[in-house]
């Protein structure tokens, strides 16, 4: 006598079953006491059931991790890298040769495209610029000293 499971198995091996019918077959082999001639199918359908269940989970995990890559929030590693970069920047600013401190009083002026920090040299240029106006040289010198202090 051909049973329902025999009919389903025949369809299955002909490639004619639907996904729903295949689920019925797997359920049958997982939950019934079977005749000897059907026992060899138990491992086969259990394998397919296990494999499809685990693959669905793995796909979910894999796609979940792929999707999260572009939107990943900064982790401790990124914060550490940012902190190191910031520290290097601060160190560069603080440890770089202080051009102002190499001058006599920490100030300078630009005259005809030249940077000058020596008050006497600056004064000479200033006097020249002002047509060597000696009466006012004291005022200029005072002003330059004020600027260069």
């Amino acid at each position: 006598m051909i049973t329902e499971i025999d009919r389903l198995l025949e369809s299955y091996f002909e490639g004619k079953t639907s996904v729903a019918e295949e689920k019925m077959i797997r359920h049958y082999f997982a939950h019934h006491n079977l005749d000897d001639d059907l026992k060899e199918y138990v491992s086969l359908f259990r394998f397919l059931e296990n494999e499809s269940e685990a693959k669905a989970v793995l796909n979910e995990i894999r796609h979940g991790s792929d999707a999260s890559v572009p939107q990943r929030q900064p982790t401790g590693r990124y914060w550490a890298m940012a902190a190191i970069a910031a520290s290097l920047l601060i160190a560069l600013v603080l440890l770089s040769p202080d051009k102002q401190s190499t001058t006599q009083n920490g100030n300078y002026v630009w005259v005809d495209g030249k940077r000058m920090s020596d008050p006497l040299t600056v004064m000479k240029y200033a006097e020249l610029s002002f047509g060597k106006v000696h009466p006012e040289s004291d005022i200029i010198e005072d002003q330059l000293c004020f600027v260069l202090e």
Partner: peptide, 9 residues
């Protein structure tokens, strides 16, 4: 595709 990924024919 049919037995593990669950696609219809």
């Amino acid at each position: 595709m049919k037995d593990i990924e669950g696609y219809e024919t």
